[in-house]
């Protein structure tokens, strides 16, 4: 097999480059959001877009997420492929009605006559001292809403393939980008154009003692914790969920069948977080293959996220804690 050319880059550059390349390929793609034009986005995802694509395709909006979502839905139903940026995931809630009541239902309401290929991109998650309104994890709320797809790539390679898939998807997609991963996580990204299908988790690290399911920043912490445990002879299988709805239970159940122990890690508050659904489905399908309880590690049930560094640290699971919890489960 011929070696594929790759370029090493971080997550945010990958999203920038991929989105730009897709806009060059397809002039139906437009971006809109707060500061995405003249400023290039607060995280620089759309840096240079205004100059290259012009103000008809790169639209600075007022600070009104209800409007951003609503306009994007209208554009999508009228033949464009809008990529709407919610500046921080925490800001998405004024647009909740548009996303949940309109975008998610259009295919159903119109008896399949209409569809809504809108893409909402948003940086989420903590660990950047963003405090209450710049740190939230919102994925579980949207995963409960029928009619939406929710994805959260954690590596540059996945972000490219999944962003292309998200733009091409004929239905609304919520594309979550962990903001702490933006510049922290680098990787080799194939130069060619490729798709990564939604609903496919990835086994990033193989192991036989315990299965660890996570996504986003927590996935990287889990891999690091697993590498540490390996020195003591404990081998964790670490799965990156990648797609939160639809879920890839096949990959998870196959791994659980091998390790017989499973832990789900997420930084969102634990109660009714994504881990609840994963745990419930594992129990429904593989309860008696388990040699230990289905462990969930999630945030405490207080509003995300405290500002004081000590409290932020207390809120977010870290590598030390994950190593400890994984060891405890492996030895159960």
């Amino acid at each position: 097999m011929a070696e594929t050319a790759t370029t090493n880059k971080n997550l945010v550059s990958t999203i920038h480059d991929t989105l730009a390349e897709e806009m060059r390929n397809d002039d139906r793609i437009v971006v809109l959001g707060e500061d995405v034009g003249a400023r290039g986005g607060v995280f620089r995802v759309t840096m240079g877009f205004l100059d290259e694509f012009g103000e008809d395709r790169v639209i600075d909006t007022p600070l009104d997420e209800n409007l951003i979502a609503g306009v994007a839905i209208g554009m999508a139903m009228d033949g464009l492929l809008p990529v709407a940026e919610m500046q921080f995931a925490d800001f998405i809630f004024p647009g909740f009605n548009q996303i949940v009541q309109e975008a998610a239902r259009i295919r159903y309401r119109s008896n399949n006559d209409f569809n809504c290929p809108v893409l909402f991109r948003t940086p989420y998650g903590g660990g950047v001292h963003g405090a209450l309104y710049h740190s939230q994890s919102i994925e579980a709320l949207f995963a409960h809403v029928p009619g939406l797809k929710v994805v959260a790539p954690s590596t540059p390679e996945d972000a490219k393939g999944m962003l292309i898939t998200a733009i091409q998807d004929e239905d609304p997609v919520l594309f979550l980008e962990h903001k702490k991963c933006y510049r922290l996580i680098k990787g080799d990204v194939p130069d060619e154009r490729y798709n990564i299908e939604f609903g496919k988790a990835k086994v990033r690290r193989e192991g036989s003692d315990v299965t660890v399911v996570s996504y986003g920043l927590m996935h990287h912490f889990c891999v690091e914790a697993a590498d540490r445990l390996s020195k003591d002879g404990i081998e964790a299988e670490v799965i990156d969920l990648r797609s939160i709805y639809p879920l890839d239970m096949g990959t998870i159940l196959e791994s659980v069948g091998k390790t017989n122990k499973v832990m789900i890690v997420y930084e969102d508050n634990k109660f009714l977080g994504v881990g609840a659904e994963v745990a419930a489905q594992i129990a429904e399908n593989a309860l008696f293959e388990l040699d230990g309880p289905i462990v969930r590690i999630g945030g405490p049930h207080v509003p995300a996220m405290p500002f004081a560094p000590t409290l932020e640290h207390w809120f977010l699971p870290d590598v030390d804690r994950l190593e400890q919890e994984m060891r405890k489960l492996a030895e159960y």
Binding site: A140, H144, L272, G275, A280, A283, I294
Partner: peptide
């Protein structure tokens, strides 16, 4: 409510976390 990430998921997870060994069958929804 829809099943995915509904309250049933949390009830099921809680039970499996805390009293799994008392169960004769998985919690169903």
């Amino acid at each position: 409510a829809p099943r995915h990430a509904g309250l049933g998921a949390e009830v099921s997870s809680l039970i499996h976390e805390r009293v799994m060994l008392d169960l004769h069958a998985p919690v169903m929804r």
